[in-house]
Every structure is written in structure tokens, then in C-alpha cells.
Design a protein around this nucleic acid. Structure first.
Lengths: 343, 343
DNA sequence: TTCGATACCTAAATCGATTTAGATAGCTTC
DNA sequence: GAAGCTATCTAAATCGATTTAGGTATCGAA
């Protein structure tokens, strides 16, 4: 197509608007708008002509105009608690969500909140300022007040992890019950009978899930599982190491550790080795980890990888589905863990 | 003040607009706007009255309206390379920037890019879609093409790290030259003479800075410093461990390692210990780290903490300064490292 | 008294999109 | 040939802000 591009101002050449398309096509602005949105009262030939023109000029609707008129922000927000987590989970999740959003019209903002504030606060801020069309949450609790808040206001969301009554929520979850079960079973297969569990914070849903899996394995295999006291997998390293050391003194028969995170597994390694145990010989450690490190750290550790890229991609799609196709059923996924095999 | 709030629609009560304020005050919309922006042709008494009304109703300007009219997005974007970095640096930087932006009118979006794409691409996308008023970059190279691109288009930015010609750039940098120097000096004070350097990727500015510091220390103290071949501090763990192990075979006199990252220090620990060396006795390891872990991992490691919270806060302020006060001089800061003392 | 200046405010246009209502043309149909 | 229909388009209003231009009252000075 040979267009009279000479009639374009520099600004129009950089960023054409509906007005530009209207002028170049000889049609009115509303007609161009309706043609692009495939309205029924526009001649098919016109639609084709306008679309071709829009593509040629690289027309992208102005977000501010769209947002002002329709109220849609085309923004989704990832609401993240500041974790004391050592490893790069959060960044990987952010990357995954952002890259999944890239081919869409949506942008990603990040809304962190701090341990000392009400977790509902960041949600309230987003709602009050109408700064997003939907949110992604993690660190879900069985009765998560944030989800109640969002449901009451009909704000789309998707969760990494799930609450108790999640049957209609969009979510992606790692199957921590399966992890707890097969983690213990793997240790049992290696002859371990007295297993220490370094669990996630007890307020989190996935802690309950993991412990349920541990119970299933205990019933099935007869192993004895004890949950670590005074520390969870989110605690600072020294605290975990100290708690495990105490546990080993109290229960010297301990011959296995199941950890909910990479850093907990490192701490467990430090504790068992300084207690004179030998990894892979007198003790085994199994752990879930999202960023591959443990196998390079100690080859004997039994690793159950968690795929955060898959999580982020799924959550992005699930949230957009909830926003754009609110009639459709919620997208849900449960990621089944499996032990990393020797290479 | 006793307001006729009964005349407010539910939407207005939730989110009052200038029109709401105009109706309640009996003035016109432009007058209210000008009063709030402290224009000279509004009676002081009116300004006070309008501001009080706005505060009482919790008026917040609609971002879409503002953006449409002024072109200002009130968004800044953090452009991040997907690091292979193990630790949670990125998330902490995001948290820091986001929390610094919270009291401001700015929102934060995250724009990740991938190792296989041109680093200028994400910047181009942001500029083309006019989706941010400014950007924050990290992983700066001495001649960073992204900065040239931004300068040519007069887009405000701030960098974590600095390029060669940074005299007028807004930046926050950890003083890696000082780190290289005092890191080596610390090792030298402990009697170490043959030091292995696990440097950052050689394309990065801060790698050059650190190595310059190492050279300064070598000149001053007479130590011998060798830079690790075949791996840098961003490489996967196993690769670093293997490279260090090879180095130890080739240079058995090695008695110190200076690492540019936490994970490199862990890898170095694994390598030296499996090579029969004893940390704190026949070998010392020093490292920079942003997330406290190493001291809990091996107490003998010499740690130089990096404060990413300070970095994020400063970068946010520096960028907003560049956006809102483009006449002012660029804000620059160099964070001086110091060794973490025993508690 | 009248002119001009000053202070303070309003009207209207604008940014870029969508949407509702209305207009025009061409075609049937009787 | 007039009425009615359908297809296709345009006009105007709207979202919420800012900005330019213009209007009115009040005051002082000639």
C-alpha cells in the first residue's frame, strides 16, 4: 500500500492515533474505532482496509485514553511479602509473570508489603487507587482475608498456593502434600526411620499440605517424623541451624531431614555435619528447591525441583482469564513434584 | 467542616473527582484544579478552602486523566536482566525501590529481559509504548548502549552501577574498587599471599572496578592475585566449583580467595574444602554479599556486606529527581564497603 | 465619570479512546 | 412512487484532568 505518509507529523509517525487513521482513511474516528473492534455495523471491506492501515502504521491504542474511557488499567499487580528467603524465588516468579505478560496488552507492577503491616493493606491501596485490573498473591493462608476482601469487591485475582475453600479460585500450586509424602518415602527407601521435618511457617497453607503428606507417608511406611520446633524454613539461617542442632541432641536417632527450602537444606547440612553425621551415609537430606543449587553444594542431597517459571506463566494466564473471561471457569493447576534423578 | 455529603453518589464517595470538588465548593472545575496546583491567580482563601475539601474527601487525581492530558505516566520501570544469580538480590532491590516509591505518586513496573535478547530492546519497548517516565538499570557496562539510547531521547534514568563516562549520570554504586582493595588487604593481613579472584563477568563495569582495587592492593602489599579463568561469579555453581578446583591444582600455593558474590563464596568453600584445605587455617575466603548467609554457613569467611536497600531507596529518589527536577544536578552515591566485624 | 488595571473566576479546547444516538443512502416492497 | 428497512457511516457526549483565552467585578486614578 502506498500511503501519503508525508502528511504525517513527526508525533503521528512515532505514535499514530485513531485520528491519524481516520484522516488517512477518509473515515471518522468512531468508524475507525468500531472497525478495529470488529463491530457488526462496519463493512467487511472497510474493516480490512483499516486493519491493514493500522498494522502498517504500527497503531497501538493509547493506554491513558483507553483507561480513562473504559476504566480498564491493563495492569496487573504482583503482591509480594518481603521474604527473608535467601534464594531468588521472588525474582524468578516476577520474571516468569512479566515474560508471560509481554505478548499481551498487560503490564506488571510489583506491590511489596512488609512483615509489620496488615497484608490486606497493599490490596486496599490497589483497590482504592484503581491501579490494577487484578492481582496475583502468594503466601496464601487457609483462611486468607485478602481473598475474602477481593471476592467481596469482585476484583480478579490468582494465587500461588491455595486457601482452604479454593474450589473456584484461580490458582497454581506445587503439590506439597505429594512432596511431603514422596520426600519421606524417598528417605524411607534409603532406610531412614527417624525423620526431622523443617516445615514452612505454620500459618501458610502449604505447610499444612506438606505435613499432611508427611503423615500419609508415616502411616504407609512406619517411619517416625518429627517437626522441627522453634524454627521454620523461612527463619534466618543461624536460627534454623541452631534449632536443628538442638533437635539432633534431643533425638540422636535422627537419620533423615526433609526441608521445605534450599536454605533450610543448607542449614540442615551445616547442622548434621557439625554434629558428626555423614551425609549420604549416616544421614540423608531431602529438600524442595526452586533455584538449582543443592546438587552442586552436596551431591547426596535428594532434590525435588519446583518450577517457578511454570508457576508464573500459569498465574499470568489464569489472571488474564479471570479478568477478560470472567464467565469462564477458574484456571487451576497442581504441579506434581518428582525427585531429580542423577544425571 | 460540615459537608453536604448526602449529595455524593457512591462513586464520588469512593473516588471524588475535580467535578465533585467543584460542585461541593460552588466553583468551576478549572478553578479547583488551579487552586490545588497553587496557581497565582487564585485567592489564598479559596486555595485553603479547596485543599481542605480535597483532603477531607480524600481526593486523588485520576491517573488516566492526568496521563492523557499531560503525557506523564507516573510510572518508573526497573529493567532487569534475568540473572543466574542464586541469591535474592533482585527481589530485594525491587522491594527497596517499590517501598521508596510508595509515598510518592509513582508506581513501579518491572521489565525483565533475557540473556538471548538485545539489552536495548526492553528500553525500546518502554519508549515506544510511552509506558514509563523513567527507568532504572543495573548490570551496567563501561560503554552501555542503553544509556546512549536514553540520553539521545532525553529519557530520565538512574543506574545501579556506573558506566565509564558517568560524570553526569544519576547512579548508585557499591565501591567495588574499594572492595577489591580492602578485600585483598584483609586477606594479606591474615598472611595470605597467593589470592584467587572470582570476579564478576568481565563485560560489567564493576568487574573492572574490582580488579582495579585488587591491583592497587597487590602493588601496596606485594601479594600475588590471579583471576579465575573459565568462570565468573555469575556462572552456575558447578562451573565455578570446577574452575576453582582446577585452579587449586594448577596453583597449589593458593591460600586465599576473594569472591564477588555469595554463591561464588559457597562454591569456593566447597572447592577448597574438598581440596583438603581448611578454612581459616590454611586458606581464607573473603566475599561481598547482599543477603546475609555466609557467616552462618562458615563463620570464618570474611564478609563485606552490600546494602541493597540503600541502593534501591537512593535510585528511586535519584530517578524522581531526574524526572521532576531535570535542571538539578544528577544524584550520585558511592557506597563504601567495610568488613563485617565479629559480633 | 470613565478609563485602565488588577484580582479572580469561568468557558471552551484538548489529550485518545468508546459509545449512544442519529443521519444518509440504497434497496425492497406494495 | 412512497414507505419501510437495512447497511453503513457520522455527530456528539463522555471519561478526568490541564491550559489558554476570555469575562466580570472592584478599585484607583485621571
Amino acid at each position: 500500500m502506498n500511503l501519503p505518509k508525508a502528511t504525517l507529523t513527526p508525533a503521528e509517525r512515532e505514535r499514530p492515533t485513531l485520528k491519524t487513521l481516520a484522516r488517512l482513511s477518509g473515515l471518522s474516528v468512531p468508524t475507525v474505532s468500531r472497525a478495529l473492534s470488529d463491530a457488526p455495523d462496519i463493512k467487511p471491506a472497510t474493516k480490512i482496509r483499516i486493519r491493514a492501515l493500522a498494522d502498517e502504521l504500527g497503531y497501538r491504542p493509547n493506554r491513558a485514553g483507553l483507561r480513562l474511557r473504559t476504566g480498564k488499567t491493563h495492569v496487573v499487580s504482583l503482591v509480594l511479602g518481603t521474604d527473608h528467603d535467601l534464594m531468588n524465588h521472588t525474582a524468578r516468579l516476577i520474571n516468569a509473570v512479566a515474560s508471560a505478560l509481554r505478548p499481551t496488552a498487560y503490564h506488571l507492577t510489583v506491590t511489596p508489603y512488609f512483615p509489620d503491616e496488615d497484608p490486606v493493606d497493599p490490596i486496599r491501596r490497589i483497590v482504592a487507587s484503581e491501579s490494577a485490573d487484578g492481582v496475583i498473591l502468594n503466601r496464601i493462608q487457609p483462611r486468607d482475608p485478602r481473598i475474602d476482601y477481593l471476592l467481596a469487591r469482585n476484583i480478579p485475582f490468582a494465587t500461588h498456593g491455595r486457601r482452604e475453600a479454593c474450589s473456584t479460585d484461580p490458582y497454581f500450586d506445587f503439590d506439597n502434600t505429594a512432596f511431603g509424602r514422596i520426600g519421606c518415602e524417598s528417605l524411607a527407601r534409603r532406610g531412614r526411620q527417624n525423620i526431622l521435618i523443617v516445615a514452612p511457617p505454620p500459618t501458610q497453607s502449604y505447610s499444612l499440605h506438606m505435613l499432611e503428606g508427611v503423615r500419609q507417608a508415616a502411616r504407609a511406611t512406619g517411619i517416625v517424623a518429627e517437626v522441627l520446633q522453634d524454627a521454620d524454613s523461612d527463619c534466618p539461617s543461624h536460627q534454623i541451624t541452631a534449632a536443628i542442632t538442638r533437635h539432633l541432641h534431643q533425638y540422636p536417632q535422627t537419620d533423615g531431614v526433609l526441608c521445605a527450602s534450599t536454605s533450610a537444606a543448607i542449614d540442615a547440612t551445616v547442622a548434621v555435619e557439625s554434629g558428626g553425621l555423614v551425609l549420604g551415609d549416616t544421614v540423608d537430606i531431602a529438600a524442595k528447591e526452586a533455584i538449582p543449587f543443592l546438587r552442586a553444594f552436596r551431591r547426596a542431597i535428594l532434590v525435588f525441583p519446583e518450577d517457578l517459571m511454570a508457576a508464573g506463566h500459569f498465574l499470568a494466564r489464569a489472571l488474564i482469564n479471570a479478568i477478560d473471561a470472567s464467565g469462564e471457569p477458574a484456571m487451576q493447576a497442581l504441579d506434581t513434584p518428582s525427585q531429580l534423578e542423577d544425571i
